[in-house]
């Protein structure tokens, strides 16, 4: 993995790696990726990817039991709130800044 790739993946993951740490991160990740390439030595022909989904999953009753978190509890940990809303910086670019 090269440095540009690290920056590209970091953007996808909503992370910013400081410039001075990018080379080291690239080296560490490359070492791990080289190691995981050992999987290519395994005979995996005919094997389906493993999932945990059962063929006929049991379905629960389509009813509520009355339990609710409630808005006050849900907002209790909010870093910034405005009444019943979590407050965040602009999502869409301001047309009239």
């Amino acid at each position: 993995m090269d440095r540009d790739e690290v920056r590209r993946i970091a953007t996808l993951a909503r992370l910013k790696i400081p410039d001075e740490r990018v080379p080291r991160m690239a080296a560490e990740l490359s070492a791990v990726l080289e190691f995981v390439a050992t999987l290519n030595r395994l005979d995996l022909r005919g094997l389906e990817p493993m999932t945990f989904a059962p063929a006929n999953p049991p379905l629960r009753e389509d009813e509520l039991d009355g339990r609710r978190l409630g808005a006050e509890i849900a907002l209790a940990g909010a870093p910034e709130r405005d009444a019943a809303f979590f407050l965040v910086p602009p999502i869409v670019e301001n047309v009239n800044p």
Partner: peptide
Amino acid sequence: GVRYGFRHPDSADVLALYTRTRS
């Protein structure tokens, strides 16, 4: 940084909020 835990202060937009908070 939106609903709980640490939020990096003074972010100009949500992308900056996510990135700076997580980093």
